[in-house]
């Protein structure tokens, strides 16, 4: 039985070569539920925000300190992840060694491990009585837990796998032909890596770093377990939000909005990668 097609719909189908745009109800209804579920909480945040005295509320709380701490610790965590994670990704992507699959599984474990468990594990290793921590304490007088350094360590532990996974994928997908060409032009392995491999995976490297930084910024479980929550010292933004919720809900909402803003900025930075449907990474 023929239906009607509006001129506009005809043009659209002719141009895109696509079929009908209307979705069957059994697919459409759950999809709408999904959208509402993901968007409504954010709307709630915006509705409840005490816009009028936002500024004084933010300044009055420990927000400034927490934000500063969060920004510099997650940046340091990202730099460490780059320095260590990129060579690690190269090792996983470009070499073959015994136990490689096990190593890959272990270093990506923090992706799925509950962060609190990561925090406990860090305490067992680097805590005062941990198997590494006790030596640090005895030989160098260094105590890591509940210091800003512990914040950096917890964030790096949780966030670095994001960088490793992204960069390893990019290295595997990269055309090895360019590296061969560089070799025939007289470049040693390190020169090939520095002048050809790294620039070619540049976009993925940047995306991995942004992803890693965002994950470090939002880190909660491992940080509070391993570094505690001392305002100005180890209390990062997410932890500050958590505590403010009891004492000063308005401040908690505003702090959340600040983090939301940062997240939106991250998403915009990655938009070419993820928001363009079906595009190759």
């Amino acid at each position: 039985m023929p239906t009607t097609l509006s001129p506009r719909e005809r043009t659209r189908r002719a141009r895109t070569g696509a079929g009908s745009r209307s979705a069957p109800v059994p697919l459409l209804a759950p999809a709408l539920v999904g959208i509402l579920f993901l968007v409504l909480p954010l709307v709630g945040l915006l509705l409840r925000a005490p816009w009028a005295d936002a500024w004084t509320s933010l300044r009055g709380s420990a927000a400034g300190e927490a934000l500063r701490l969060s920004l510099w610790t997650s940046t340091v965590a990202t730099v460490i992840s780059l320095l260590v994670g990129v060579p690690l990704a190269w090792l996983l992507a470009r070499t073959v060694f015994p136990g490689q699959r096990l190593v890959r599984a272990l270093v990506t474990l923090p992706l799925v491990l509950p962060p609190v468990v990561g925090g406990v594990a860090l305490l067992m290793a680097f805590g005062r009585s941990g198997f590494i921590g006790q030596h640090l304490d005895r030989w160098f007088g260094v105590t890591l837990p509940f210091t800003p350094a512990a914040v950096v360590i917890a964030e790096t532990f949780v966030a670095m796998p994001f960088l490793v996974v992204t960069v390893e994928g990019a290295l595997r997908a990269a055309d090895r032909g360019f590296e061969e060409a560089a070799e025939t032009l007289g470049a040693g392995r390190m020169t090939v890596f520095r002048r050809v491999t790294l620039p070619l995976i540049g976009p993925s490297l940047a995306a991995g770093a942004v992803l890693c930084w965002a994950r470090a910024l939002g880190e909660f479980g491992a940080t509070i377990t391993f570094a505690g929550s001392f305002p100005g010292r180890t209390q990062t933004m997410p932890i500050a939000v958590y505590y403010a919720l009891e004492a000063d809900p308005d401040a908690a909402i505003l702090l959340s909005l600040v983090l939301l803003l940062v997240s939106v900025a991250v998403l915009l930075a990655l938009r070419d990668r993820w928001l363009r449907a079906g595009s190759a990474a």
């Binding site: 360019f178 060409a181 025939t184 007289g186 040693g188 050809v196 620039p199």
Partner: peptide, 15 residues
């Protein structure tokens, strides 16, 4: 890297 060989690859492989 140490061979005195110049290669023009199929597909050229310009950086």
């Amino acid at each position: 890297a140490h061979r005195p060989v110049g290669v023009v690859f199929q597909g050229l492989r310009l950086f």
